[in-house]
Design a protein around this nucleic acid. Structure first.
Lengths: 107, 107
DNA sequence: GTACATTATAATTATATGGTTATGTCCGGT
DNA sequence: ACCGGACATAACCATATAATTATAATGTAC
């Protein structure tokens, strides 16, 4: 996962409301109408948050009659955590700086 | 770490520029003047990004003569990754919904 | 087809974010 | 003391974000 994509995924998670939603979906799938009373916000607001999580690949939706159930993609979530633990190697960038004589030497 | 704090920490990371900065600091400590030529942005912009990371507890600074070197707090970064893997248990919220008869039953 | 329940989209608004330029602060060298 | 380099802060601007209300779209039941 490149840094642009990782930043997008983190942006989707970087909101207390969505983090709580993800934590709930970690227990079991939920539909919008169950989430609304748990948060102090309107139904469209909940819907938009789920849409954001869906775009980030963190949840998947399934229609069941009138309801749309959302399920957490646990592998995707774990993948984001792992990406933080395995950031790309930027040694090349530092070598490039060195070639240009821009590295600061002190001590 | 509660969800508000976790969201704040994730916000600090949820930017491609800052993610790249963190990746660089993962190799070695850097000062602002080294970072500026690596990003296409002004010195104050770099400074503000580092300030954001500092507020989130992700980096620490040390003055060395004219320069201010920034060091990545690797434990803090790892802690954020782990928090994603161990989200709080929200079973209580769901039980509360059930008591109120708001859980959707289908199939 | 009508009526109702659930969810999604549109339009709007207030605040947050990320960039800029200009200026202030701190340190080292002469 | 003064000047110049490195960094931080301030003021400003454009865009993104998260909420709202109003309205459309979808599905069930009669």
């Amino acid at each position: 996962m490149d840094l642009e994509q990782l930043a997008d995924a983190l942006k989707a998670l970087a909101d207390p409301t969505r983090l709580k939603m993800v934590s709930l979906l970690n227990i079991r799938d939920c539909c919008i109408c169950e989430l609304v009373p748990l948060f102090g916000i309107s139904q469209p607001a909940v819907s938009k948050h789920m849409s954001r999580l869906k775009t980030a690949g963190l949840v998947h939706e399934t229609r069941k009659g009138m309801w749309v159930f959302y399920a957490l993609d646990k592998e995707r979530l774990a993948g984001i955590g792992l990406s933080l633990a395995h950031l790309p190697d930027m040694s090349g960038e530092l070598r490039r700086l060195e070639r240009q004589g821009l590295l600061v030497q002190c001590l």
